[in-house]
Design a binder for these strands. Structure first.
Lengths: 202, 202
DNA sequence: CCATAAACGGACCGCGCGGTCAACTTGTAC
DNA sequence: GTACAAGTTGACCGCGCGGTCCGTTTATGG
């Protein structure tokens, strides 16, 4: 079951509620993690709990809808950067955009969110291809060590956020620091051989 | 409330059960995450659910007990490496030990586990100091960029496991690959200045 | 052996969760 | 203005969780 297949257009108020709901859910998940309760999300959006399930058949579908949005944003950013003059800087910029998506304590659910909805799988694949592309260009340009793959980058993408999320009182921009360290590790200069082969494509 | 304060020594079978319980819980948490149910843990250990709570007043206390073990192991490893000839290699070895602690999907709960038990806080502080020491030595030895702190390393420690945990079918040693990349990012050669100041001590 | 305290086990409790539903409200097309 | 479909709502359900409790079993010191 996917994101409620809408036959005809939504009524005005329904569309508004759907939007508040998505926003509230994104905030709530960002603050409390994926365990945030549907009731809390509804309250935050100023609607009844029943309304949530009218728009999204399941909590997982709600998550899938948010993931879909985020992934599409990322893909768009990636495609915009495909033509950049400096492919190395473009890859760094892409990773910055990825990590910058709010303070999202971690967007692990980017991978997490099961494949309830084929639209999510498809969007995710598109994003993976975009990353592959950015990685290939950066490597050709000598800005990236030649033993890392697009899959590596996809996996590493969320790490700065994850790491920073464990420093309680720290700056909300702390992830930039760890992205800096990560990116230095991805540069070709002074790269040491890696002990394990790259993982298969996701 | 801490790990059950034991007045006198445990009965033989009780000690055995306590050990199975700790092992079963570690396995279960590693496989299913911290949401694994106490009932499942009890079943896996071959004891009744009541027995779990006889040994650990609370699920959080059980977690704390495991964390305490792991942290102490780490500290021991760190202290052993303090005297190593090559402080750079020693730091890498320490990070390897840290990530190697089983396939633990992530040992995030290392930070996570609230400060229910003062013994945990104390053990954690000891470990932090050990890391500070290893970091200082590595830096003095020119094996580590001079803008990263012990706190940075503590935060980064779990990243390789975290990253690898999102590659479903991959090698259980995949974390070594990402530890390699991370460590290259920590080397002084070709380090670019970091955009954010280091976080305060945890 | 036996007496006894220690340890065990599983039925039981209250809670909060995701999800349902039938009565009610409201936007909208004519 | 009105009729009706679309939308909303909160009480309600079943479930599985962490945690409790007491009748039963068992290790152990003398």
């Amino acid at each position: 079951m996917g994101v409620m297949t809408t036959g005809r257009p939504l009524r005005a108020d329904a569309a508004r509620n759907r939007a508040s709901l998505l926003a509230a859910a994104a905030d709530e998940f960002a603050e409390r993690g994926l365990d945030a309760s549907v009731a809390d999300i509804a309250r935050r959006a100023g609607v009844g709990k029943g309304t949530v399930f009218r728009h999204f058949a399941t909590k997982d579908d709600l998550i899938a809808a948010i993931v879909l949005d985020r992934v599409d944003e990322l893909t768009t950013a990636g495609e915009r950067l495909r033509g950049a003059a400096d492919p190395g800087a473009a890859l760094l910029e892409f990773l910055t955009v990825a990590a910058h998506q709010r303070q999202q304590r971690d967007l692990s659910f980017l991978h997490g969110a099961g494949d309830v909805d084929p639209a999510v799988t498809e969007a995710r694949d598109r994003m993976y291809r975009t990353v592959d592309d950015l990685v290939a260009r950066a490597r050709e340009h000598g800005a990236l060590r030649d033993d890392v793959t697009g899959t590596d980058v996809v996996l590493l993408m969320c790490a700065p956020n994850y790491v920073a999320s464990y420093a309680p009182g720290a700056s909300p921009d702390l992830w930039r620091r760890y992205l800096g360290i990560l990116f230095d590790g991805l540069r070709p200069q002074g790269a040491h051989p890696l002990p394990e082969p790259p993982p298969a494509a996701l």
